[in-house]
Design a binder for these strands. Sequence first.
DNA 1: TCATTTCATTGACCTACATCAATAGAATTT
DNA 2: AAATTCTATTGATGTAGGTCAATGAAATGA
Lengths: 199, 199
Amino acid sequence: MKSSLSPYNSILANVAKHILLTAEEKKYFCSQLRVKKLRKRQYLLQTGDVSRFEQFVTKGCLRAYYVDEQGHERIVQFALEGWWIGDMGSFFSGQPATLTIEAMEDSELFQIERNDFDILLEKVPKFERFFRILLSNAHIAHQRRVLSHLTGSAQERYLDLRSKYPSFEQRIPLRHIASYLGVTPEFLSRMRKQLAKKK
Amino acid sequence: MKSSLSPYNSILANVAKHILLTAEEKKYFCSQLRVKKLRKRQYLLQTGDVSRFEQFVTKGCLRAYYVDEQGHERIVQFALEGWWIGDMGSFFSGQPATLTIEAMEDSELFQIERNDFDILLEKVPKFERFFRILLSNAHIAHQRRVLSHLTGSAQERYLDLRSKYPSFEQRIPLRHIASYLGVTPEFLSRMRKQLAKKK
DNA sequence: TCATTTCATTGACCTACATCAATAGAATTT
DNA sequence: AAATTCTATTGATGTAGGTCAATGAAATGA
């Protein structure tokens, strides 16, 4: 937390989008964070473990997915720099996680532990507000995603994703993008071919 | 708020699931609510209007839906007694609503207005916690719903819905259930026929 | 460096679900 | 009580997207 290049700045900037902290509070908040480094392909969380942390990505790129009975992976979330990721169900309930979270690149995160999280909310109630806002944004985004499945074709979902997050195609393997969209890699490949032709 | 039969009890019970209020706080909270009665088919919110309220259902049954370019309705949420419903995006941002909300039966709701909501959170910060928990539950439910579209067939979604909310089939027309599941009424009808045969 | 695994693409064929049209029973309205 | 909507169901047919198998290119590892 010394230089302006510190990764703490990125999480503080994220917090500052919604609530205003005093210098003291910033310091306290940062003191509750632990740094976690992951190698590419390393798991952050595996199904069945209890998720004791929520995390904020400062470097790299992760994916959260669910493995169904046939062993297929279904990606529910990507997280790049500046995103929060975790298995919130498990984090809040203490039940075993249903999600697996894995680094797609060497990554660095901040983690906050469930206990410290509760104490943080108690000591600095502004954080109740912060997480409420975070969640309400997530809620709205999720609603849009459900809608995109009810309303649109796979191609529309692909085009939406591409225009909203152009960086994904550079950093994320196509088969993972297919899984996020809810189609097979084969079908994504065909869509891409057809779109390229039309252009 | 006088008798134990008052509809205030149902919203207070809902709040009490997550936070503990003093008698004073209960009184204040209830004083910020307004009662809204709707006839069957009446709109609570129409696309393009700004949603100034969030609401809690004490009686009846509503649906929130999105209308796509071809005029098709896609249902994103049902709400029966004891549920919260609204267009949260519009409520928090002040932007025009993308959802339409309509009563499917004569219904009664409590509404809280955006301004009063902000003041409530300021005066009784426990409500930050309450809405955060409400949202995190919604978040988890939404994630499951996205997953059900990525992973499962329409039949699985139908069976899930039926076992989770058996009362829906008594109260909600099949064509709305079809819309919620993301299939046509025709296809839902065929699924039901086939399931009935197998039994 | 060669060997091995992983990845994206293509082709052939299959299935879950959509669309459109017709009908009959319910529910509303007159 | 008749007339007029809605609603659920069925049949015929069309299509988006899945499955399985094969191939070459790229990444990974010894």
